[in-house]
Write a protein that binds this DNA or RNA. Sequence first.
DNA 1: CATCAGGCGAGAC
DNA 2: GTCTCGCCTGAT
Length: 280
Amino acid sequence: MVEIENAFFSVQQICDSGQCFRLELLEEREEADGKIHRRYGLPAFGKYLEIRQCGQTVSLSCSLEEFDAVWKGYFDLEEDYGKLIASIDPEDTYLCRAAAFGSGIRILRQELWEMIISFIISQQNHIGRIRKCIRLLCERYGVQCQKENGEIYYAFPSPESLAEAGDEDLYACNLGYRSRYVRETAASICRGEVDLAAVSAMDYEDALQELQKLRGVGIKVANCICLFALHSTEAFPVDTHINKVLREQYPEGFPFERYAGYAGSLQQYIFYYDLMGGRV
DNA sequence: CATCAGGCGAGAC
DNA sequence: GTCTCGCCTGAT
């Protein structure tokens, strides 16, 4: 087990910020001292990580070696998010409020293929339903695996398994009109029309163009993939929430020059604030 | 009941 | 190149 103490690390906020659809809250209980203790599960990289958080203390069910090799990078723990937040223009009260509200969010380094399919499914969709779609896809097309305690979970389905899926079966996973996008994108990857390893090695601009060769991947989805899989923190996905905030809070335009290279990280605070700000 | 969700593709111009 | 429209489906 590895324990982390960090003021800028809230698993719940990462979960609610809608960047990782397979991270799920398993248990929530209030201890005798009034502190809330939460337990989460996360299947990724062929492993199943169990996470616990109480206050600012997060513990991960892995060895120190595994933590250094996988999860430290995954949760972007080398990055100082306090410094990032401190760099925000103090006169930009909206952005300051948004960052303070979501100060525990971190930009994860997730698997490229999983992000491609997840964000294709995310279009014109609610986070709850996106999670359900992905859960169904994993259960029907993912390889069955076992947690350390023997419980079963499902890996994210491979491109091959989704390419071979019937359109009707994908429809049954609640994908709606996106089922065609998922199947065609999977087939396209299998045929090598887009090479995932090559995309991983590309810079932001090239990856953005290359990803849009896939069915169902437009500028917004491509930016999400760049941000959440390739960790291109300059990627700034504009969806209906961000669009609304840009219109209402930044009529003169968002100051991208001031935040060159990491506007995408700030985007995530804005998105989460607009999504969750009303219901604390 | 209508509208909208972390949009995109196709077709019109 | 820019604009408009239709699209699965569940929540509100």
